[in-house]
Design a binder for these strands. Structure first.
Lengths: 136, 136
DNA sequence: TTGTTCTGTAATTAAAATTGTTACAGTATG
DNA sequence: CATACTGTAACAATTTTAATTACAGAACAA
């Protein structure tokens, strides 16, 4: 995750905002993003779980925003979408017999948490409405 | 990149600081990180390119810090190590025939740049000395 | 009430990115 | 000149990510 999920989610939310309440189906959205509709549906499922969108099943179905774009802030979207830490998360455990290796995971985790919090804080200063307003 | 590179680089720098000027070879470092020595050497090559470490080739060779730990700030390390954007960078080009698809790459890039700048600013408030001092 | 068009989700395959491995030239040391 | 390193490149293995296929269930409309 990380890279694409947030981009895809924001793309979806922006589209939904732009069409002002109209239902969009996953194929249309996928066409705009240029990716697979199933990927869009998975992303929508997550956005739905976090209360950002509503979906209607069946013929003529699709998705729409579940709340006002002004009430969706990008930090919240980021948190909803995030699956793993931006930094860190190495494949192998450092050597527990080395004084540095033994402690570094915790120190890195703390460092990353703080740094990421700064990033999220920045995102939180913007709403979907702000972001979407940039499109003309 | 992204995840592991920064972690590995910081791990290396911390080790080098802890041994106070002693030369460490890639195999020793790899042993602490629990990864392949070649990966360490690649990382060292990058750190060297950016002036953080010095290496000595040949028998008895190894690496050491090229400057004082107090003069190495983690934001600079991050920038040196970074190879791609934290957020963004999707695989496919969005659809240029869609008003949103057409503009979103630029908007996302701007958003990510700002958010990432906030993260780097946070990291920049800490030096290697600060970080390394946490190990006892 | 039946065909159609969607969502939601799982399972599988394909592609891409990351990491590990092997190999070896070049450099310093004793 | 043997040994022990760095620095790189080329390749293989692994892991992660995205695409594809498939299908049950929901809503709609004739």
């Amino acid at each position: 995750m990380n890279n694409s999920h947030f981009s895809i989610s924001l793309h979806i939310l922006t589209l939904l905002d732009q069409v002002k309440g109209q239902l969009l189906n996953s194929e249309y959205i996928a066409g705009s993003i240029n990716c697979n509709p199933v990927l869009v549906r998975k992303e929508l499922a997550n956005l739905h779980k976090h209360g950002f969108v509503q979906s209607k099943e069946g013929k003529g179905g699709g998705s729409t925003l579940a709340k006002n774009a002004a009430d969706i802030n990008l930090g919240d979207v980021y948190r909803a979408v995030k699956q793993k830490s931006l930094l860190g998360e190495s494949r192998n455990e450092p050597n527990p017999d080395c004084p540095v290796g033994k402690q570094i995971t915790k120190h890195l985790t703390d460092l990353y948490h703080e740094a990421e919090a700064a990033l999220v804080k920045n995102l939180s200063s913007k709403t979907l409405k702000d972001f979407s307003a940039g499109f003309k």
